[in-house]
Nucleic acid binder design. Structure first.
Lengths: 133, 133
DNA sequence: GCTTTATATACCTTGACAAGCATATACTCT
DNA sequence: AGAGTATATGCTTGTCAAGGTATATAAAGC
């Protein structure tokens, strides 16, 4: 041990379905390993191993309660994911606007007045030729 | 060739760093394969392979422009990630509130026992016995 | 037609990782 | 101390995905 700690990105951590399940379970309140094991119906070593990964990546932390260990969520890593997502949200709203304008054009009788600035995402857009194989 | 339509979860798709880079590149505007190759400095087959994965997972779509293919972002899959994150945002705000209250209490007492990294959780918690190997 | 440019795919090798099982550690209670 | 409970870790194995290299497809220009 003790080599360079393999710093996996937060995205690799949450790529694993069982780990996402554990995180979703912990969002409401903390849980012991046994409770997680029971509620998610996965073998105990599997739970422990995933918890270890989550702990070392900072997604969770544990406190000792007699023989039990209570795991609880920590916010930072998932906030990092949220931060990565931020630029794309901009894109979504623009995309929705474009869709609205398109629908407006199709429905030429619409009397509703919208005051939305025109936004185009690129100069020189050629007509879309599908290309969905 | 058999098409093994392996339906990977959106999380597995974005676990790959190069794919995240491609997505981030496409968020501003569409790009051809060659531009992606050049700007991200990765070999062309690598780009094409990742684009294929992204395309089949619905993250991007392509249009033909002569010999080129222009790839652009599609919103839905990343919105799915965003949706998964939603419950955790609730948790963050609660957590931040609790931390603020806690820091307020600390400032009232504690004669400059500032030691970076010291952290206690919640009110009347048992002493934390390390548990970070 | 042939050559150049642009992109996709096939094949192979390598490495990472998750599951399964067994076992070790640690705490509690009688 | 010994038994029971709760959790962690070691080891092995199978799977799968990513990168590298070579090649195939396709359109453009001469």
């Amino acid at each position: 041990m003790g080599y360079t700690k393999r710093v996996e990105s937060v995205f690799e951590i949450i790529a694993e379905p069982n780990r996402r399940a554990i995180l979703s379970l912990l969002v409401s309140s903390h849980q012991s390993v046994g409770e997680i094991e029971r509620r998610l119906r996965m073998p105990q070593p599997t739970v422990s191993k995933h918890l270890r990964v989550l702990r070392e990546a900072g997604f969770v932390e544990s406190t000792v309660d007699a023989q039990r260990r209570l795991y609880r969520l920590k916010p930072e890593p998932l906030q990092e994911v949220d931060a990565w997502l931020a630029p794309f949200r901009q894109f979504w709203s623009a995309h929705v606007d474009a869709l609205e304008r398109h629908l407006d054009r199709m429905d030429q009788s619409a009397p509703t007045k919208r005051k939305t600035g025109r936004r185009r995402r690129g100069p020189n857009r050629k007509p879309d030729k599908g290309e969905t194989k």
